[in-house]
Design a binder for these strands. Structure first.
Length: 107
DNA sequence: CAACTGACTGCCG
DNA sequence: CCGGCAGCCAGTT
């Protein structure tokens, strides 16, 4: 299984209405310290095709709660709000309310 | 093969 | 709270 698939699988675990950060996804995927690779993997979703629909990429924001997406920040904001996740006027999510820590046992 | 480029992060001032 | 900066690493040029 490729590193990307491992990352996609982890992103798929993020529950509806919750968010996670690039760093946490990397950690849960068994790739501690590789936050940037998570962003890279999500960016690659569009290019190599078909799995875009099954990976909830919009539930991933950066460590401070901001939307890091350089491509479609507006779309990500809309998708998050559609799940009742509050995004403030500066594109930030309150991690104290919506951050999904993940299941400790999956480490 | 050497540089460059990010959907990142933690640390420091 | 904000900007700067060094690690990070797979793809592109």
């Amino acid at each position: 299984m490729s590193l990307y698939q491992q990352i996609y699988d982890t992103v798929r675990r993020i529950p509806y209405g919750r968010v996670s950060s690039y760093g946490r996804v990397a950690l849960l995927a068994g790739l501690p310290g590789h936050a940037r690779m998570v962003g890279y993997a999500l960016h690659a979703l569009g290019s190599h095709g078909d799995d875009v629909g099954e990976v909830p990429w919009w539930r991933v924001v950066n460590a401070t709660g901001y939307i890091s997406n350089a491509y479609q920040p507006e779309l990500q904001r809309a998708l998050l709000e559609a799940e009742d996740i509050v995004v403030d006027h500066r594109e930030r999510v309150d991690l104290r309310r919506f951050l999904w820590e993940g299941d400790e046992s999956m480490l």
